[in-house]
Simulated scan of single mutants.
Amino acid sequence: MNDPGAMRASDAEREAAVELLRVASVEGRLTLGELTERTEAAYSAVTRAELVVVTSDLPQAGQAPMPAPAQAPAEQQGRTRRWFVAVMGDSKRRGKWRIDKPLGAVAVMGDVVLDLRQAEVRSGVVDIVATAVMGDVKIIVPDGVDVDLDGIAIMGDKKVQVVEAPPGMTVPLIRVKAYAVMGDVKVIGDSRAEPVKKAWAAWREQWREMRGELLGEPRHLPPPPLLNRGPHPEQPSAQAPYPHEHYPRQPFDPDQPLRPRDDGRWQERQWQDRRERGH
């Protein structure tokens, strides 16, 4: 009898898993980076078992979700916007934070940085108005999202440097309206930003093992530890055998100057000879 988990996943099952991820993000269970990573894994899943792993720690369809926090009416949310302003200074927002309303960024002879990768996004669209006047506005997003950048640039620049998802995928949308006057508005992805530390996730390791077995890839083992080394890998330990014993010893001449080599091993060998001979 065939294993149900080994059966091939259908497009409808992949879309159902992606919708489950989207709902979990709206409920605050996933950050934008986690949502993007799991969405990519769901779309690339081949078997049903892989889809189960991607959503294993989330409430399944039909289960009663936790009560959602009270939200303001849609009309009120449309009139409000959370602002980040820098005038001849810096304004940065990183780490864990919640995005439940449109954002605004204004940089006047200053810098504004909005890092959305670890933010909890309560909707499928993040709306941002960015204004840079002789300043810079940088918006960091996880690779794999869709970015819609619009606006004007006068003696300035507005650009997107994000590895976006292939067409046809249901992924979060980052919509940016940019106004740059002698300034820059940039939307950059993980590949061009300082990486963030990802928390250990059991689903990720299990999913990679399943993918490796399915594709016949060997498991990647960690490299063996260095033996006979001191606290600094560049220097041999005093108790350990000399690591370059395969280099032959040469007659020692105290009047001969040390001859530098590209790798420095010959010079290090002569210093070892002098220590052993008491010079």
Rank of each mutant, 00 (worst) to 15 (best):
G183T: 12
S237D: 10
K186R: 10
P218M: 04
R211L: 15
Q239L: 11
D190G: 04
R249K: 12
T31D: 01
V52K: 07
P67I: 13
G230Y: 10
P166V: 13
R208S: 14
P172W: 09
Q256N: 04
W203M: 06
T131C: 00
K138I: 10
L30W: 03
S10I: 03
A61P: 13
M66Q: 14
L51T: 11
V108R: 01
G264V: 13
F84T: 07
R14Y: 11
A49H: 14
P65H: 11
E268M: 08
L258R: 08
I140K: 00
V133N: 01
E50H: 10
V176F: 09
K101E: 12
R94S: 10
Q256W: 04
D115H: 03
W207S: 08
L20K: 09
R81V: 06
L58A: 12
V113Y: 00
E120G: 01
V162E: 00
G135E: 08
G168W: 14
M155Q: 02
V112A: 02
R93V: 12
P260Y: 05
E40F: 07
V108Y: 01
Q76S: 06
R204V: 13
P260Q: 05
A41T: 06
V187R: 02
V54M: 02
L51M: 10
D3I: 14
V176E: 03
A202E: 13
S191M: 03
V145D: 00
V185K: 00
G156I: 11
L30A: 02
E37R: 15
H244K: 03
G95E: 05
E194V: 15
M66G: 12
L258M: 07
Q235T: 12
E50I: 12
S237M: 01
A74F: 04
E13S: 13
D90M: 09
G144Q: 03
V121S: 01
V106K: 00
A119E: 02
T55M: 08
G264T: 12
A70S: 09
I152K: 00
A199Y: 04
L227Y: 09
Q63R: 13
K198F: 05
T47P: 03
D148M: 11
